[in-house]
């Protein structure tokens, strides 16, 4: 458990391990499009495909952080676009609570992100990854500084 950022005294790694949970129908397709369009973005993200962002239980995000992920991203279809009608509306509420709780307990909110990326937004996907990586890196560095 020593790698978990829940512990203090972490060293900033050169490469981060950020887990991205992407819905199959929009965001995963958007990430594929970034590929077919050869858009370049940092290699710090590892994608896990889920059927719908609505599949995401906040506990999965927490577990992921506890196990040692530097950051977590959940990405789904834009509101109204959900392949399963309304999954993204529910997950938006769940993740809002999670985000508030993490922050309340002093976990840097930049560790956890959520985004809407559609199947045609390859460029947005690349931008989202860039932002998330930057944020997580900043959070890691800041944590080391305050701990150090």
């Amino acid at each position: 458990m020593s790698r978990s950022h829940f512990d203090s005294g972490e060293k900033v790694k050169k490469k981060l391990k950020i887990i991205g949970f992407l819905c199959n129908w929009c965001s995963y397709a958007g990430a594929d499009l970034a590929g077919t369009s050869r858009l370049q973005y940092p290699a710090d993200i590892r994608i896990i495909r889920v059927p719908c962002s609505g599949r995401m239980n906040p506990l999965l995000v927490l577990k992921c952080l506890q196990e040692g992920a530097d950051g977590v991203l959940v990405s789904g279809c834009h509101p109204g676009d959900c392949h399963y009608q309304e999954g993204n509306y529910y997950v938006r509420r769940r993740m809002l609570i999670l985000k508030n709780l993490l922050e309340y307990f002093g976990i840097d909110k930049r560790r956890f992100h959520m985004s809407w990326v559609s199947a045609s937004e390859g460029a947005k996907w690349a931008d989202v990854v860039k932002k998330v990586v930057e944020d997580v890196r900043d959070a890691c560095e800041e944590e080391v500084k305050t701990a150090g």
Binding site: V50, C52, R55, M56, Y84, E86, V91
Partner: peptide, 9 residues
């Protein structure tokens, strides 16, 4: 349809 909203809730 297998969306998993139930499992997450």
């Amino acid at each position: 349809k297998g969306c998993g909203s139930c499992a997450a809730t």
